[in-house]
Amino acid sequence: MMSRMKILGYYLSGLLLVTGLSLATGVRAVETTNATHFNVSYKSNVEPLPLNRIHSWVLHVATRDGKPVEKATISVYGGMPAHRHGLPTQPEVSEIGGGDYLVQGLKFSMMGKWEMWFNIRAGDVTDKVKFDIEF
């Protein structure tokens, strides 16, 4: 009986391994923000995030208690630290309203780990947010 349980354990481990590997394919986007003042999220106009294709995001900026942040000045930069290069494009940010900002001209041209940084200044408050993306 013990040995059967052991076999089942091995099988489940194998299954988990296979499942884990399948999760490693495709794109993963994780917010690892160290922002202290704002809650920031994004939505891409192409899902999942595309490789090698220009696309845009809508960035939503809110205060910690959920109120939309308007008239913010946002600059964007990013790249692949492991390969010591920046973004292949120069994206532009414009305000839509209601705490939403359009980020146009985004492109990820390589497989691997990317970082997307946004510097957000609203009134006297400045904050920085980072998204980790992996293809």
């Binding site: 059967r4 076999i7 089942l8 099988y11 194998g14 296979v18 490693a24 394919t25």
Partner: peptide
Amino acid sequence: VWVLWFCCLSFATPTAADPGWSES
């Protein structure tokens, strides 16, 4: 269980004809 486990093993053991490609 044995059959499935065998499948997992054969999936992971590389040979010249079957290099055992992972899902990724």
